[in-house]
Structures are given as structure tokens and as C-alpha cells.
Design a protein around this nucleic acid. Structure first.
Lengths: 361, 361
DNA sequence: CTGAAAGCGCTTACAG
DNA sequence: CTGAAAGCGCTTACAG
């Protein structure tokens, strides 16, 4: 006890000082190794010691350092998912299945919404650098390139779930947009529809929106395919560009204009489900019956499809499969086998609901 | 070069070996400190050295260890948000605002959906122990107690955003359910409605659902308050228990039964927006006009409210405020000042849309 | 059953 | 401008 230099700072037991293994070991009068073992329920510790150590740890408020543990054990085994900033949409079930897949592989999943963050995508991507993550899945992110550069800099692999980008920077998971659109339009044709309109969101150059809009073009192509296959003429007036508006919008102005002009389709295929709600209200406000007079269909099979009235016939993306595939590709890359930068397409399914149907007027 | 013990393992440059600062420093022929500085853009490094070191680091595929850095720098500054397993719902904007708040305080946010995980809540809570997180916000989690115990064990503080639990285990953020419900029912009364039904989800004892169902009781109480205040009788037949069904359900069976029995309300207040879609379809299928004959209102102002036709009059939860408050309370606890376990209620707003309205038949 | 020691990969005073 | 060394808080062979 004599001559010990006063290395003990005054605040040694103040709140600032985090309680460490060493503190517990000192308090318990045993070595750190023993404390570690006692806390980890290691068999090589006497029950008595174990209990005593634990009691002291509890009393001191000991809390292991995740960082130290990770450093010692070599990592966190976690991957990140960056989700879009346009609200929670069609991709939500994808995240679910990605979680399933990742956690069965022993990986934690960190979700990074772009929306809430101050700097948007840039901030998220920067933040990635300081996150204990070994790979990233980007869902429908407008600027794949920014994420690509960040991944390269940080040195982690990435996988994209995206059908809006022409230029691929990652192995990319998509649904079969063209085929799916063809399927649903063929369905309309089978039900006797002949004047089928296509509603596509209007791509404003340079504005945030749907990236290169690939999925819009592909779905339009599927629409054209199906009409041609049925020997139906393509009336360009029935291909309608609708402006991007908040989901709270009540009516579809462009459809109103079309109807005002006396052009009346007998079916409307919306490029995605989200467009259908205002379309249905517009028809309803004009006393046009759905599906009797006009059938309506969408694409995605997300929440909007079942909330609208009548419920929407649509094309279901294979969300589960897509989420699992993304995780598989990513973990493979994490293990050292990077996947080639190419598109992987997954098959869609036609889902028939009341908005199309045989009971015509 | 003579006599150096073969301490270099064969795989020293194989894939298994992670590239560390030391590797870079050796390759560059400088000290580790210099590498660290060069990479961190520290001013005390000559431009030449910096560039050379960086080039080598890049070439070697060096990637800093987040764990080591965190250990050295003392933590990650991240908090966790545990989100419900009933899909992405009303709480989505809450998460957004929590992100805003956390990131301006310099904290990362980890989102842990319960749904995707194999073991459900238990697995998430266990996983927390190995996550670099300093606190947790639980949103509408059925078993607050389980999370509470985990927090205690791990030694991190928690805050709940929840209006379904009677027993509080955390400082808890809620909307003013009773007042909000009173407001919307008073609104219906002002518009001349006299026979106002209340639809509440049916609480099955022991089944997963809405916890203790506090918010349901409170909203019902608000409904009763408003009727009493207006001097209107309470017709218990108009208080309808509806079974929990998937959102894909087309009609509301219980409402159909009520109408079949000849009991016809002139307004329906749904305990939450999600109940309204089948209600509206049920009315529509019976040629009952909304709002002319029956007005419909909900609670939450979530996505469902604007997707249904007609759009729903509802009560908006102050999502932003609630998210910010949760983060503030949590960070305060992280800094060492735990908040008392009590309920904090935040005021709601009436949002009028087309499903109620003056244009009566 | 227990303890001293090495080492995970960084960063930063400290000393040139 | 640069480097050697200490130390962040653990865990686990290794040696009793």
C-alpha cells in the first residue's frame, strides 16, 4: 500500500468511467479470465465463483463491450439493406425475406432508410463506412453509381434489387417486367377488352423519380407485345403519361382529360399499383362501373392493390424469391466469390381480383 | 534476411487473411502511424507519402476494421428501433422522424424488423446483445416485458412507442387516443349523424393481437364521451367486434350481419384506418352511398386512409413529434439521465376527407 | 478450477 | 514530417 503512485484518477468510479472486465475482476478479487469465463457460463468455473462474480458484475452494472468482443472474435456478421425514400412500398416483403435468409445464415441485418437521414443517400452511404457491415443490398436506389463508389471505397460488396436502372453497377435482381405486363394485358384481352389504355408515370429528365425508368419501358413493351399478339391495333392516344403526384391525390387528371376528349377505353393497365387508386376514383366519380364498363389492372401486388375498391388485378413480383436471391448473392460475395454484374430476372404471377372480371355490363 | 523464423504462415497472403494497417505499413515501408494518418487525411503527412500510402492501401484492398476503430474511439453511437411484425403500418413515419432526430444527434439508427427473423421478438432481442447499440426504441411490441428484461440484462435503456400496453415497462410515447376519437365522433355529430357505429377489433385472449388493447378501449371511450356530450343514446348493437383478418379480405362480415339484421347506422367510426377498406366495400356492394347515407371515419391517418375510396376522414397521430420525443428521451437516458417510466401523450389532429361530409342524400 | 499474457486492429499522445 | 509504443476491452490457448 506504500508508495503507489496516484495513478488512480479522482473520477475512477465516476459515471464517465465505463465498467470493464478489469473493474469486475478487481472487485471480485479474481483474474479477468475468470470473470470472462464466469459471465460466459464456461464450465471450467466453480459454481460458487461464478455466482459471486456474476453478482458483482450485476451490482457494478458491468456491460460487455460489443466492439472489443467483435475485434477479438473477428467481426459482426451483419449486412445492410438500403431502402428507398419513397415511403414503404412494394419492396417491403423483399426486406422481410432478406431478413429470413440473412438470419438463417447467422447474419444480422441493418436497415438504412434513406428518407429520414439528413443528407439523403449520400449520408447513408457515408455512414456505411462506420457501420459494422460486410455487404449491402440496395433496393430501388436512384443513383446506383454513388453506392457503387462507396462500396468500392469501403471495400464491401453490394447487390441491387432494382428494375429502374439501365446501367448496372451491381449484380441486380429484377422481376420479369415485360413478361408480367404481357400476361396481365393478355388476361384483359381474353376477357374481351379491346381498347386497353396504358398509364405510365411521366419521366421528368433530371428530376428524382424512377431512375432510367427501365421498368416503365419494359412494362410498356409487354403491353405492346400482348396487343400485337392479339392482333389488336395500338392506339397511341391510349398511352397516357401521368405526372408524379403525392399519394394523397384524389383523381387522375390525365384520365379525366382523356375521357373529356371522348376517348373511352374498356380497360386500363396501370404501370404500377399505386397509380390505380386515383384512376378508380376518377372512374367512380364519372359513374363508370369497374369492371363492368372499364377493367383496371396494375403491377406489383403491393398493399395498394388490396386496399382499393374494387381490389386490383395485378402482377405479383416474387418478393420472397428476390429477397432470398439477393442475400445469397451478397453472402457469396462476402465469402470471397463476387457475383458478376448482370441482371437476374425472377418470374411474376398474375393475380386476378375484382377490378377485372367477366361480369361485363 | 538470415535466420528469420518462419513465422509467416503459408496463407499470409491468401484470402483468409484480412489486410490490416500493418500489412499496408510493411508494403509501404512506413510506420503504422503514418499509414493511419495518410488514410485519415491528417495534415502532418507529406503529400507524396500520403498518395503513395493510399495507392498501396487501395491496391492491397485494405479496409479498416470498424470494430477496432470503435474499440479505440469508444463506441459506435447507434441506437436501435424494433418495429412491429404486422407489416409496415402507421408507425412508418415515426421511424422516419426518429432517423432525422438521431442522425442530427450524431447517432446511427439500426432498424430491426421482428417479422423476418426466425425466432421473432426473442431472436431480435437476443441479437441486440451483440449489436453495437446504445439504446432501443420499441414500437408497438406486444411483449414489452421481454424487451425490458433484455435491456436490463444488456444494460441499455429503452423507450416505447406504444398505445396498446396497460403495464408500462419503459417511458412510453402515445397519441391522445381518447381525445382524438372524441374529436372525430364529435365531427360526425356536427354533420348531423345520429346513429354512429363503432367498429373495434376483437381481442382474443392469449392470441397475438393488440397487446392489452389499450388504444381500442381508449378510442371507444372517446366515442362514448362524444355521444354523451351530444346527448345521444349509446346503442350497444352499434358497437361491433370485428375479427382480425388479413388485409386482403374483401368485405366486413360483421357489418354485413348487422345490416342484414336491419340495423343501419348513419356513420361508422373504425378503431383504425385499416378496418375501413372492407367496410367501404361492404357498403358499396349494398348500394349504400358514402358519405351520403353512411359516413365513415378512421384513426391513424396512415396509407390506407388515402388509398381507399372515398378517402377517409381520420385522426392523425403526430408521428414526427412522437419519433423525435422518443429519440430525445432515449438519448437522454444514454447520456446517463434515465427517464421515468410513464406515459407521454401527444396530441392528434382531425383530418377531414371525402368519407364524411355534408352532402347527404 | 484459476491467472498472466498475448493479441484482435486501430489511433494518438509522445518523442524525435 | 515520421515512428515506436501504449492502450481501447475483450477471449483463449497456455501453464499451473
Amino acid at each position: 500500500m506504500i508508495g503507489i503512485p496516484v495513478k488512480e484518477h479522482e473520477w475512477s468510479l465516476a459515471m464517465t468511467h465505463r465498467v470493464t472486465l478489469r473493474d469486475v475482476s478487481k472487485a471480485a478479487g479474481v483474474g479477468m479470465a475468470t470473470v470472462s469465463r464466469a459471465l460466459a457460463d464456461h464450465p471450467d468455473v466453480s459454481a460458487e465463483t461464478r455466482d459471486r462474480v456474476r453478482a458483482i458484475a450485476l451490482q457494478l452494472g458491468y456491460r460487455p463491450s460489443v466492439a472489443a468482443r467483435a475485434l477479438r472474435n473477428g467481426g459482426f456478421r451483419a449486412i445492410s439493406v438500403i431502402v428507398p425514400d419513397d415511403g414503404w412500398g412494394w419492396w417491403e416483403p423483399v426486406v422481410h425475406s432478406a431478413f429470413q435468409a440473412a438470419s438463417s445464415a447467422g447474419f444480422q441485418v441493418l436497415v438504412h432508410p434513406i428518407a429520414g437521414t439528413d443528407g439523403g443517400l449520400a449520408a447513408v452511404v457515408e455512414g456505411l463506412e462506420n457501420m459494422p457491415t460486410e455487404g449491402v443490398i440496395v433496393i430501388s436506389v436512384r443513383d446506383q453509381q454513388a453506392v457503387r463508389e462507396a462500396c468500392d471505397r469501403i471495400g464491401i460488396p453490394g447487390v441491387a434489387i432494382d428494375d429502374s436502372s439501365l446501367e448496372l453497377r451491381f449484380p441486380t435482381i429484377s422481376p420479369t417486367n415485360r413478361i408480367g405486363a404481357g400476361d396481365v394485358v393478355a388476361h384483359l384481352v381474353r376477357q374481351g377488352r379491346r381498347r386497353i389504355a396504358f398509364l405510365r408515370p411521366w419521366l421528368v429528365e433530371g428530376l428524382p423519380g424512377w431512375g432510367d425508368g427501365l421498368f416503365i419501358r419494359e412494362r410498356e413493351q409487354g403491353y405492346r407485345d400482348a396487343l400485337s399478339a392479339a392482333g389488336l391495333p395500338i392506339d397511341e392516344r391510349l398511352i397516357l403519361d401521368v405526372a408524379q403526384r403525392p399519394e394523397t391525390e384524389v383523381y387522375c387528371e390525365e384520365l379525366n382529360q382523356l375521357l373529356d376528349a371522348g376517348v373511352v377505353p374498356d380497360a386500363i393497365f396501370c404501370a404500377f399499383d399505386g397509380l390505380a387508386a386515383p384512376v378508380l376514383r376518377t372512374l367512380s366519380s364519372r359513374r363508370i362501373r369497374v369492371p363492368a364498363e372499364v377493367a383496371v389492372a396494375g403491377f406489383d401486388d403491393e398493399r395498394a392493390a388490396v386496399l382499393v375498391s374494387p381490389q386490383l388485378t395485378t402482377v405479383r413480383q416474387p418478393f420472397d424469391e428476390m429477397g432470398r436471391a439477393a442475400v445469397a448473392l451478397l453472402l457469396q460475395a462476402v465469402e470471397g466469390t463476387p457475383a458478376p454484374i448482370m441482371r437476374h430476372e425472377f418470374g411474376t404471377t398474375l393475380v386476378e381480383r375484382a377490378s377485372t372480371g367477366l361480369e361485363r355490363a
